[in-house]
């Protein structure tokens, strides 16, 4: 399983004086479950983009295990992400017209990464997240069910890291709690490192620890710095 280390990471946008993300040092241990909180505009999404390899920092290293993903070329980074990271977003990004099962399989199929057991695994995951009919069209799912399908999709390729960006923010409290429970228990079952950006207190409280971002810096930076 993978640990995350950020080292002197900085992201700036032209026209802005201060960097939107400025983290001197951050370490997340393998299999740790960490919450990231902070007001909007504090750099949470930028942090997710950087640690998933969707974007690269202007400076610094982003180490997952021994691999600095900031140094990888875009295609390599895409492949690394597909193999390593399971992503759950606030918007479910399920594709209309495809069944729950096809949605779960879509990213792997587009990468031609479906093996013999992939289909069985997809069925098992859908059953695990509580979707009874795998061939149900996504248009007929409730919002809670949609996010559960998205969780199953994130886990299909047995990622070493699970990253969720506000996974419960667009759900009612009942469905939100279900999804939070699923994320935590599935991460623990699979031994994946879990990083969740959230405002949801009930979710944050169940994580191993919580980081707070403020204006692109870790609010408990002194503590994190000492720990490193």
């Amino acid at each position: 399983m993978l640990a995350l280390t950020l080292d002197q990471v900085q992201v700036s946008y032209p026209g802005l004086e201060t960097p939107v993300l400025d983290i001197r040092s951050l370490t997340v241990a393998a299999e740790e479950c960490v919450a990231v909180t902070g007001p909007s505009g504090s750099g949470k999404t930028t942090l997710v983009n950087i640690i998933t390899g969707l974007a690269c920092p202007d400076r610094g290293r982003v180490l997952w295990g021994a691999e600095d993903i900031a140094a990888l070329a875009e295609a390599r980074r895409d492949r690394w992400r597909a193999e390593t990271i399971g992503l759950v977003m606030q918007e479910f990004h399920l594709f209309e017209g495809l069944s729950a099962l096809d949605n779960v399989l879509l990213p792997a199929r587009l990468r031609r990464a479906t093996g013999r057991d992939t289909l069985d695994h997809a069925h098992a995951l859908l059953a695990r997240v509580g979707i009874k009919r795998a061939n149900q069209s996504t248009a007929t799912l409730s919002r809670g069910e949609m996010q559960r399908v998205a969780v199953a999709r994130a886990l299909l390729r047995r990622p070493k890291v699970l990253i969720a960006d506000e996974p419960t923010a667009s759900l009612d409290p009942g469905h939100g709690a279900e999804v939070a429970e699923l994320l935590l228990s599935l991460a623990r079952e699979s031994g994946a490192t879990l990083i969740v950006v959230s405002h949801d207190e009930r979710l944050i409280n169940r994580m191993d620890r919580s980081l707070t971002l403020s204006a692109g810096r870790l609010a408990n930076a002194a503590f994190a710095g000492l720990a490193a």
Partner: peptide, 16 residues
Amino acid sequence: RRQIGALRAFGAPRSA
């Protein structure tokens, strides 16, 4: 662009 970005984020290669 969001949908295309999502496909990429979930692991679809650019060629796909």
